[in-house]
């Protein structure tokens, strides 16, 4: 179970959250005029990142707010948490514990 830091409430267990898929995929403003390919890309094309992934979470059983996170999919470690509308911070290095 992940430990997720809600930017409004602080660290909470994953049970309180719902995953919201890849972040920074804005719904096109001019949807009805979009080409079939562009619309299909918006609807269905997502990254399958091995490494640092920008994704959305919602603190459903808490404040109810959506927010964004950078998570390393190889370790499940969060690298950054930021609010909706903010740009993704430059990816930071994961912390590794030396043996």
């Amino acid at each position: 179970m992940l430990l997720i830091e809600c930017p409004y409430c602080g660290e909470r267990p994953e049970l309180e959250f719902v995953y919201g898929g890849q972040a920074h995929i804005a719904r096109p403003q001019n949807a009805p005029d979009l080409s079939a390919q562009a619309w299909s890309d918006y609807l269905y094309q997502r990254d399958n990142t091995k490494g640092i992934h920008a994704e959305r979470w919602r603190h459903t059983h808490g404040c109810g707010r959506f927010f964004n996170a950078l998570r390393d999919t190889t370790t499940d470690h969060f690298i950054a948490i930021y609010k909706v509308g903010e740009a993704a911070p430059a990816a930071l290095k994961t912390r590794k514990v030396a043996l």
């Binding site: 190889t74 590794k96 514990v97 043996l99």
Partner: peptide, 11 residues
Amino acid sequence: VPAQSAERVRS
């Protein structure tokens, strides 16, 4: 044997 840790763990 353990090499690189991913979590805050030591063996």
